[in-house]
Amino acid sequence: MNELFHNAAPNATRVAPPLPKPRQYPQQKPANAYLFGTCVLDLFFPEAGMDAIRLLEREGIRVHFPQGQSCCGQPAYTSGYTDEARAVARAQLALFEQDWPLVVPSGSCAGMIREHYGELFKDEPATLDRALALAERTFELAEFLLHVCKVQFEDQGAPTQVALHTSCSARREMNTHLHGRALLAQLGNVARVDHDHESECCGFGGTFSVRMPDISGAMVADKTRALRESGAAQVVSADCGCLLNINGALEKQNAALRGQHLASFLWQRSGGGR
């Protein structure tokens, strides 16, 4: 959240960024797709990456995972290190050359590729076309399942209540909160509970939590208090950075409530592993 405004004048009017433009979705599911695992998912939530692959494979899609992939470049980009972000992004461009969809189990990382790669390479015409082409075929996982695969989940779990958390950048750039809500609504035994502070940042913000730990700590305290007071038995999110922050705070509070990646939640509720 902080990166939106930290360069603004103290009394400047805060103008919300525009919502994502409506996009045209393929009429048929592709035979092949790339998965961009994201660095946080790869290191801390590998089971969510595997569950994302299982969800796609169950739809008849062959999933390709280039081993050389790393970070999307977002931490450097939002911290003002544009040259470093460009170098990281250029390395990713070289890995996804086939004209297949790029599915990302993170709204913030998907938003980086889709919304900002064009800006990164605007002064490099030879690279810009590749960056824009990749951006156009980049989808956040929930968006892809809903609008491209047109999944219809049959809930096989016990009745439960969950709270959905969506990162602030994923909300404004990829509408991930709407996609997540729609998928959860397909699960007949899952009741999604609204919670106070639902649209507010959890305080992670990538490097924001490192540069401003006191503010970040206060924000995640507000977030976790709202989640605990919601009555939800579980938190579900499509962004691993937020899950790290929220789960860490809940653990420090000795709370029983925990968050799970949306991919794992959907896979388990729809009969995965049984």
Results as ranks from 00 to 15, higher is better:
180 G>L: 05
241 G>S: 13
217 G>R: 13
57 E>Q: 07
207 T>H: 06
51 D>R: 09
240 C>A: 10
73 G>I: 04
167 S>M: 02
12 A>G: 08
30 P>H: 13
189 N>C: 14
55 L>H: 11
190 V>N: 12
24 Q>A: 03
259 G>Y: 00
5 F>K: 04
175 N>V: 07
27 Q>S: 08
268 Q>I: 14
29 K>A: 04
157 G>T: 06
271 G>K: 03
56 L>A: 03
218 A>F: 12
81 Y>M: 12
228 R>K: 09
239 D>C: 02
95 L>D: 15
103 V>M: 03
239 D>Q: 10
56 L>T: 00
126 A>P: 07
167 S>C: 01
210 V>W: 07
211 R>Y: 13
110 A>L: 07
86 R>E: 00
247 N>T: 01
231 G>A: 13
7 N>W: 12
189 N>T: 12
269 R>P: 03
179 H>Y: 13
117 Y>N: 05
101 P>F: 01
251 E>R: 04
231 G>Y: 04
109 C>Y: 01
138 T>L: 03
136 E>W: 06
153 F>E: 09
182 A>N: 04
225 R>P: 02
211 R>P: 08
5 F>P: 02
208 F>V: 01
137 R>P: 05
251 E>N: 10
137 R>D: 06
192 R>C: 14
222 D>G: 15
167 S>Q: 05
229 E>P: 00
200 E>Y: 14
267 W>S: 09
265 F>D: 09
96 F>I: 06
37 G>S: 15
42 D>M: 11
218 A>S: 09
135 A>T: 12
47 E>I: 10
129 D>S: 08
164 L>F: 02
189 N>M: 12
76 A>Q: 13
197 H>T: 13
129 D>Y: 00
213 P>S: 14
118 G>Q: 00
267 W>A: 11
270 S>F: 14
171 R>D: 08
127 T>A: 10
262 L>C: 09
11 N>S: 10
256 A>V: 08
147 H>M: 05
235 V>A: 11
83 D>S: 10
100 W>F: 03
251 E>L: 13
235 V>C: 10
121 F>S: 04
2 N>M: 05
72 C>Y: 05
206 G>Y: 05
146 L>T: 15
4 L>Y: 12
271 G>R: 08
164 L>E: 04
253 Q>W: 11
9 A>W: 06
193 V>F: 05
63 V>R: 02
142 A>I: 00
194 D>Y: 11
76 A>W: 11
256 A>P: 11
47 E>G: 10
50 M>Y: 07
99 D>A: 11
242 C>M: 15
108 S>R: 02
158 A>K: 12
48 A>Y: 06
201 C>W: 05
211 R>W: 14
235 V>R: 06
118 G>M: 01
178 L>P: 03
165 H>R: 09
114 R>P: 08
129 D>L: 03
